[in-house]
Design a protein around this nucleic acid. Structure first.
Length: 459
DNA sequence: GGCGCAATAT
DNA sequence: CATATTGCGC
């Protein structure tokens, strides 16, 4: 492939310009000191942190607001739950990716956690790169390894090109290279086959692409990286790297996206313009990320969804049938979904969100209602199921990467390869440009950890 | 030819 | 309703 430096985007921007800011992480750690340190570290990278010192607290938080969390980072030695229990319990409750960080550096602990569903096992001390790359996991679900037995179901399965389960794998920095990018076959077979009991499945007409969370995420990610200014269909498409996705699809979506932005924007100006100092000091990422709950979800029978979800929980396989999961009523909030710029999120308590784009100082503000956007789409109940729903939709797709084209009836799925490698300049030293004392402190600590192998503070 | 946009079709 | 397609001006 053309080595073309595709996307010549400056990723170093500021602080955390190279990855989504505002990914929300729930940190579960019993040791307060450790918890604090980790939190700081995460925050320094732009993550938004929620903490819990006990497993029960973590579970409560998840139950109450899973949709406000993108990823769970947990210790395994918790006072109120033993080693794998948290993984199992959380696994049943949520489909969010779980990252374990532990001082146990023995293989069994590690494999045990992975087997129980952890998306990643980090060894303490946790270092910068580990933390820095965590956000990537929000693009895929943890792999639901039968939590109760019979594991090795589908390790590198057959010939499928899918796989690529090597996100930050053991060594974050190096594994980033995404894998190949297989041929992009359209795979639209299966259709003509007389699908016996299948209600309808008319011939491959024009499939309608369904913008799933995953797709939309990539879309947004691309925009973020390209900058709102350089976000044109072609580039976006390129960056999304989704086989089968056509420029027209992107164009269409982009058009709608712009409309949405615009609408939000001036709906904004009207509503409030008072004392919001557009202190562009914050260089937040392109506003939106996770498209976790939004109008883009179409309607579908709840039941269908539920079934899928259920299945998913029990078998990794069923994840395939999931991509099309249309979140039913789905919770309020809108396009913006989960990943809201870090600081913005913080500010959201006061009903305002500041967002801006990477390549511009443009900063805009959005109103929020209860931490969720409301302007869009229908309101909904906050039932756990719905939250789960969101999570499921988001993650499952991420796992196997199936993306769906087609209507609820005729759809085609195909695995999603990794998005175009981020133009990330591998570690060009540290993106971190410490600004506050706290961050400085953090760095120092980190340094100590790195230099002192006997540092047990993390335990 | 690509892009954005609006109208129109599905 | 969400997405696709088309046509037009840039």
């Amino acid at each position: 492939m053309s080595s073309e430096q595709v996307l010549s985007v400056e990723v170093t921007e500021n602080n955390a310009g190279s990855f989504p800011i505002g990914v929300r992480i729930l940190v579960v750690e019993s040791d307060p000191t450790c918890l604090r340190i980790v939190s700081k570290m995460l925050q320094a990278f732009g993550y938004e942190v929620t903490t819990a010192t006990r497993a029960t607290d973590a579970l409560r938080i998840l139950r109450e607001k899973e949709d406000e969390i993108n990823l769970i980072l947990t210790e395994t030695h918790l006072p109120d739950m033993d080693q794998y229990e948290i993984l199992e319990t959380v696994g049943k409750l949520s489909s969010l990716p779980i990252v374990v960080f532990s001082a146990d550096n023995n293989e069994s602990a590690m494999l045990g956690c992975l087997y129980k569903g952890a998306a990643l096992y980090l060894m303490k001390p946790v270092i910068k790169n580990d933390v820095k790359n965590l956000w990537q996991l929000t693009f895929r679900t943890k792999i639901k390894k039968a939590v109760s037995g019979e594991g090795s179901n589908s390790f590198h399965g057959g010939s499928s090109e899918e796989n690529a389960s090597s996100l930050t794998g053991g060594n974050p920095s190096s594994t980033m290279g995404m894998t190949d990018q297989k041929g992009k076959r359209k795979e639209l077979e299966e259709t003509d086959k007389d699908d016996k009991d299948n209600k309808n499945l008319t011939v491959p007409k024009k499939q309608k692409l369904v913008w799933t969370n995953e797709l939309h995420n990539r879309f947004l990610q691309a925009i973020r990286i390209l900058g709102i200014d350089g976000a044109h269909p072609k580039k976006i498409l390129q960056h999304m790297n989704v086989p089968g996705l056509k420029k027209e699809n992107v164009s269409s979506h982009l058009q709608k996206y712009r409309l949405y932005l615009k609408r939000e924007q001036d709906a904004m100006q009207k509503t409030m313009i008072r004392d919001c100092h557009p202190s562009s000091t914050f260089n937040l990422q392109g506003g939106f990320s996770q498209y976790t709950n939004s109008q883009f979800f179409m309607t579908a029978s709840q039941s269908e969804y539920r079934n899928n979800f259920q299945n998913n929980l029990s078998s990794p396989m069923s994840a395939h049938s999931l991509g099309s999961v249309h979140s039913p009523t789905h919770v309020n909030s809108n396009y913006n979904g989960i990943l809201i710029p870090n600081y913005g999120q913080v500010a959201s308590q006061s009903k305002q969100l500041y967002t801006s784009y990477p390549n511009s100082n443009h900063t805009e503000i959005m109103t929020v209602t209860d931490g969720n956007f409301s302007s869009f789409g229908q309101k909904g109940n906050h039932s756990v199921e719905e939250h789960l729903n969101q999570g499921t939709a988001l993650s499952n797709i991420g796992t196997h990467g199936p993306t769906f084209l087609g209507n609820s009836q005729q759809q085609v799925q195909f695995p999603l390869p990794q998005p175009q490698p981020l133009p990330e300049k591998e570690d060009e030293s540290d993106i971190l440009d410490i600004a506050t004392v706290e961050e400085l402190e953090l760095l120092l600590m980190e340094k100590e950890f790195l230099e002192d192998p006997n540092n047990d503070l993390w335990l």
